[in-house]
Design a protein around this nucleic acid. Sequence first.
DNA 1: GTGCCTCCTCGAACGTTGGTCGAGTGTTCG
DNA 2: CGAACACTCGACCAACGTTCGAGGAGGCAC
Lengths: 234, 234
Amino acid sequence: MDAKGLRAGGRGGRSGGVAGEVWLRAEKPRRDTLTRDRITVAAIELLDAHGTAHLTMRKLAERLEVAPPTLYWHVKTKDDVLDLAVDAVFSEVEIPSRTDDWAQDARTLVLRWRATMLCHPWSPALIGRPMLGPNVLARTEFLQSTLARGGRTGPSLAAATHGLANLTIGAALTESTWHGQLPRSSAHELIQANADRYPTLAANHHLDAPDQDALFDQAVRTFLAGLGQDISRC
Amino acid sequence: MDAKGLRAGGRGGRSGGVAGEVWLRAEKPRRDTLTRDRITVAAIELLDAHGTAHLTMRKLAERLEVAPPTLYWHVKTKDDVLDLAVDAVFSEVEIPSRTDDWAQDARTLVLRWRATMLCHPWSPALIGRPMLGPNVLARTEFLQSTLARGGRTGPSLAAATHGLANLTIGAALTESTWHGQLPRSSAHELIQANADRYPTLAANHHLDAPDQDALFDQAVRTFLAGLGQDISRC
DNA sequence: GTGCCTCCTCGAACGTTGGTCGAGTGTTCG
DNA sequence: CGAACACTCGACCAACGTTCGAGGAGGCAC
């Protein structure tokens, strides 16, 4: 709000201005023009800080020191912003270098994939929208080509790719739920209070907390083990 | 809107009213009072019909022939409604009867689980909230106890349970995305147009469409096969 | 009957949200 | 110089989730 006056007039080019105006510009060096990238970055920062519910176009505009309608020149809707943010997150997933062990490569990718999503706990819940961003596609391409190296083709390849990706997404989604939410103690209490209805859950719930990372890794290994098995019997 | 006048005064008891009022009551026989269950049912109907974005407290109230604030006596927030709706959906997942084959039982459950979620395509995206409803817990209890029959305990059991559940949730989430969204032809076009960047994806994308059910079933079988394998080597 | 209490409902309104419109700015190019 | 372009913003809108306080209906004690 306090920068409105300064901002008026775009980046205030080199056409002769009022004496002393240079200093004002120096203090507030309007960083170029707005871009999709800058919007995306700011959106991710806000999402990381306060979660999905608190991301509004106004707060986004405020952070970018712009009036709200300005955003709509670069982006069509708020959903566009979310799509951009989700895809940008995937760019943080480093694509592994290929080794001789395709299964290991696939495992490395999905482990990093999940870890990245957990760094941005709001991201898994936003996957209920078309994942067609270049970064998402690049990771999917790597995963599928890696599994293809294992000798799979056709429906078998598709099933393996989707299975591994869905396992990862599901894990990130459920785990990110607990992270941001009420303490897991309340879940524990609820289950223990109804131990008669959920005996197995109650008996094993204390074991959940320790190491979610290891649990996911184990699930991935299980899936990959299953892949190794059924390829040999086909 | 047209029933406002009729509705005034609750269910219009038997205290003597204006002549002819009986007929009005007969035409609009106020079905009892509002309940959480009725709210939940109506919410699911609206969600099924128009998706998450179009569910508003006002439309929900309108469907129930009630004024919007009335809902807030039975429910604290809109999120409550969503939680109730999600859990209610899980009640539609019929718990399989136990057979001798625990793997088969688990497979049956998750197949039904996914199918139910796809019947309500809005539901997977709402899992980014605590799943502590009784119906969800009952299904999880069945899944965990079934896998426990396979001889698993401790972290191994937890990994298997989460893995299978996450695979199912992820599958439902990604698949429901495509269902309600723009035709998959646009995804196909995008991939084919960038076939140089995504060679494997482009080569195999035409195979995706045929039978998603079979693909998921295959992924589940793969996971279960992996379970059978690593239990024997531990 | 009378008074009271709880359950349930609603009219009015508040603050905020995503989004639109048209006018205005500086810059660029012919 | 003038027109076209890229970009920004003030004013405004309908719709949303939610709150508040008023008030009717039914049941209970007396």
